[in-house]
Design a protein around this nucleic acid. Sequence first.
DNA 1: TTCATATATTATAATATTCTAATTATTCAA
DNA 2: TTGAATAATTAGAATATTATAATATATGAA
Lengths: 112, 112
Amino acid sequence: MDKKVLENLELLQKRLNVCKAVANAKRLQILDLMRDGEICVCDITSAVDLEQSNVSQHLTVLKNAGILTSRRNGQHVLYKVRNEKIFDFMDALDALLLEELETASKLLKGLQ
Amino acid sequence: MDKKVLENLELLQKRLNVCKAVANAKRLQILDLMRDGEICVCDITSAVDLEQSNVSQHLTVLKNAGILTSRRNGQHVLYKVRNEKIFDFMDALDALLLEELETASKLLKGLQ
DNA sequence: TTCATATATTATAATATTCTAATTATTCAA
DNA sequence: TTGAATAATTAGAATATTATAATATATGAA
């Protein structure tokens, strides 16, 4: 990892933008829905229990952060992740959390 | 990755907690300061250009999210990450952003 | 004990985020 | 073209987050 590049202010801002974009329960859920590929706004709306307008707002946040792209197909608009590496990012978080769960579980066993 | 586990509500909440905890410019900066290991509150304060009380608040957020631990050493309190995998998480984000930068750079070259 | 240094806590004002409701825009089919 | 379905935009109220200022707590040295 090139530290010089990471000190680039614009990149730091993008790092923050992505973190802020995913720091919301509904948007995390929406991102998970995209692991299987493109999905239309109406399918997202029925999956996440939010008003359509609110889903659209969340999608805009994710798109503005550079995480999603969209294309129209007839009446529908399909969204997908711009770069699959966003899932590596999410998976790295899950790996951390799962390790912590295992550590806690082992501690509990030790107490038995 | 075990999807069943990830559907665990508590884990989803922890995922959100971590995302929210890192979704702040100063806290991202504080986390970076910990890549070299333990660091005391006073050194963090002088590094990040914030009031001491505010630094303490940010550290509390990171600690409550399970990201940091602390120990007292005399007058000083030293903080460090609980699990180094938090850096894998951050590095995965940087990898995504750097790839996007490269893609953009190649596109620009193509236009020349 | 008393003082100086380091850290934490609390209240509050300023700002940002989120959801709802209403409206607007876009597409397709009748 | 009109209407129905899908999606986006806007305004707002409610809530959450942030920084500041003031205060409290904890430690070590004198």
